[in-house]
Each structure stands twice: as structure tokens, then as C-alpha cells.
């Protein structure tokens, strides 16, 4: 099965985390599950690299965290987006759109 999934491109994990958290606050495990679901098991995310990413984003001030009771009743660390995180997500989405658009243009050029 792993062969059908390709590894997540460098640098896009941060953007995906921001995107997931823009919907609602979540804990690390929840984010991992959401990643699995959203990407329909196409993208392979190493769960281990999720945590350094979360801490990096928190250090940059884009995320904030707090310990809350989770759905299982145990305390879990929930992350949510800060306002500067929201801005960052917008910036990243735009630059992603520009990048993919540009790449598409190059491909289209080759076709014609």
C-alpha cells in the first residue's frame, strides 16, 4: 500500500496543518487523522514529523495551544489558529495557487 501514496512535498505540511486547524481546534492525533481523511490516503504523512511542525508553528506565533478534555475524556493538547496564523494561511494559499498555476502554465505550453 505505501507505494500508492507519495510522500508529502517539503514545506507543505505546515500549510496543511494550518488549513486543518482553520476549521476547528484539534489535538495532534486528531490532526493526524484529519490528514489521513482529507488526503484520502493519497498523501503519506509521517506522524512523527507532525509534532516538530506543530511546535515550529507555535513558536512562530501562528498557533496557540491549551490543554483541554478530549472526546475520550482524557486531557489532550489542543492547537488552534491565531490571527497571525490565519493571515499566514492566506498568504500560503495564495502563493501555492500561484505556484501551481505557474507550473500548470509551463505544462500547458509544452502541450500546445
Amino acid at each position: 500500500m505505501p507505494s500508492t501514496r507519495f510522500p508529502i512535498p517539503q514545506g507543505t505540511l505546515d500549510m496543511l496543518i494550518l488549513q486543518i486547524l482553520s476549521l476547528e481546534p484539534a489535538h495532534g492525533y486528531g490532526i493526524a487523522q484529519r490528514l489521513e481523511q482529507i488526503s484520502k490516503s493519497v498523501v503519506q504523512v509521517n506522524q512523527g514529523s507532525l509534532y516538530p511542525g506543530l511546535h515550529r508553528l507555535e513558536q512562530k506565533g501562528w498557533l496557540k495551544s491549551e490543554w483541554k478534555q478530549s472526546e475520550t475524556g482524557r486531557e489532550a493538547k489542543f492547537y488552534s489558529l491565531t490571527s497571525s496564523g490565519r493571515k499566514q494561511l492566506k498568504v500560503e494559499k495564495e502563493s501555492w495557487a500561484r505556484l501551481t498555476g505557474a507550473v500548470q502554465l509551463v505544462f500547458d505550453e509544452g502541450k500546445s
Binding site: H27, Q47, H55, K77
Partner: peptide, 29 residues
């Protein structure tokens, strides 16, 4: 500067991370 601050409160951070990873691991298991 933030990093220096982190160094000063690293014990707290460690405990936090321990709990966080433990939660993840046990949920997954």
C-alpha cells in the same frame, strides 16, 4: 531571544511534550 526563554523553561516544555506524545501513542494503540 525566544529560544533563550525556551531554554529557561525547558523542564515544563519537556513534561508537556511527554504528555502530548503519550496521548498520541496511546490513542493510536
Amino acid at each position: 531571544m525566544k529560544q533563550l526563554l525556551n531554554w529557561l523553561r525547558r523542564r515544563n516544555l519537556e513534561d508537556d511534550l511527554d504528555r502530548e506524545l503519550k496521548y498520541h501513542f496511546e490513542r493510536r494503540v
